[in-house]
């Protein structure tokens, strides 16, 4: 129970520290961006994108999920992780944090939970906004047929698979953001790896990159039967291992 108490207090501290920062705004803006782009493309160019009597949700959801997992999710994770850690780095408050009577693990875990929670919020928003956007397209452009079909479960499963397979990337970025005080280094690393992954996506070696696992899950298909759930398990395992390894590495370091 004492461990839970430490975690609860650390988590309450992290929530308070995040107050008035841009982390929540970024968690909202990233999904808004990807859904708005897909919505505008559908609204303006739907006649070309959607065929009569074919479920338009298939193409619409594919645009959103691929756009999200290939580019926005990794870049957003890199920025969000750097922002979460910038709260301490910019104020140089690590020395205060570690001279309080709180175990180092509770500081680490609560920060990781805050970051993962923000990314979970973004995924919920991707799902909610995608559903809302499709519904709006059904109202504004009934000729596309959004109001006649649905794809709730696939979209929800897609968002969930994206989150779980991206956990490995989250743990890696989390460690980099905590380890390096410069905002540019972890954010730049994440951006570079994302772009490299997008370019070299067809190469077998790219499967080793945790930044590509969220998109590789979908196996270029919106059919759940074709999805590669192995990346979900690998993502979760990497999250666990990188999380523990990151903590051990951080806990051994002197505090600047």
């Amino acid at each position: 129970m004492k461990q839970l108490d430490y975690f609860t207090r650390s988590f309450a501290q992290e929530r308070l520290k995040a107050k008035g920062t841009q982390v929540v705004w970024l968690a909202i803006l990233a999904p808004v961006f990807v859904v708005v782009v897909a919505f505008m493309a559908s609204y303006l160019d739907g006649n070309r994108l959607y065929q009569h009597n074919v479920n338009p949700w298939l193409a619409y959801s594919t645009h959103i999920l691929i756009g999200w997992t290939l580019f926005v999710f990794p870049i957003y994770t890199s920025l969000q992780s750097a922002l979460v850690h910038a709260i301490e780095h910019q104020s140089q408050t690590w020395k205060t944090v570690y001279s309080l009577p709180m175990p180092k693990w509770s500081v680490y875990v609560s920060k990781l939970v805050v970051l993962t929670g923000l990314i979970l919020l973004s995924h919920l928003l991707v799902f909610g906004l995608a559903e809302g956007g499709g519904w709006l397209l059904g109202m504004l452009k009934p000729q596309y047929g959004f109001q006649l079909f649905s794809l709730h479960r696939v979209l929800a499963e897609g968002c969930f698979a994206s989150l779980l397979s991206g956990l490995g990337m989250i743990a890696v970025q989390f460690y980099l953001g905590m380890r390096f005080s410069s905002f540019i280094l972890p954010a730049g690393f994440g951006l570079m790896v994302t772009l490299t992954g997008a370019i070299s996506r067809s190469l077998p070696i790219s499967r080793a990159s945790p930044y590509l696992w969220p998109v590789l899950v979908f196996n270029s298909s919106i059919q759940t039967d074709d999805w590669q759930y192995t990346y979900v398990w690998i993502g979760m395992l990497t999250f666990l291992l990188a999380g523990i390894g990151g903590f051990l590495a951080i806990a051994r370091r002197d505090v600047a």
Binding site: R9, L16, G20, T21, T93
Partner: peptide, 27 residues
């Protein structure tokens, strides 16, 4: 122990009271 190490490390985006609240939660 209560400590002040070099220049005070404060969360600039929070109020003075909230900075103290962060410490209070730990203590």
């Amino acid at each position: 122990i209560g400590a002040l190490i070099e220049s005070p490390a404060l969360y600039n985006h929070l109020s003075g009271r909230d900075n103290l609240e962060v410490i209070r939660l730990a203590r």
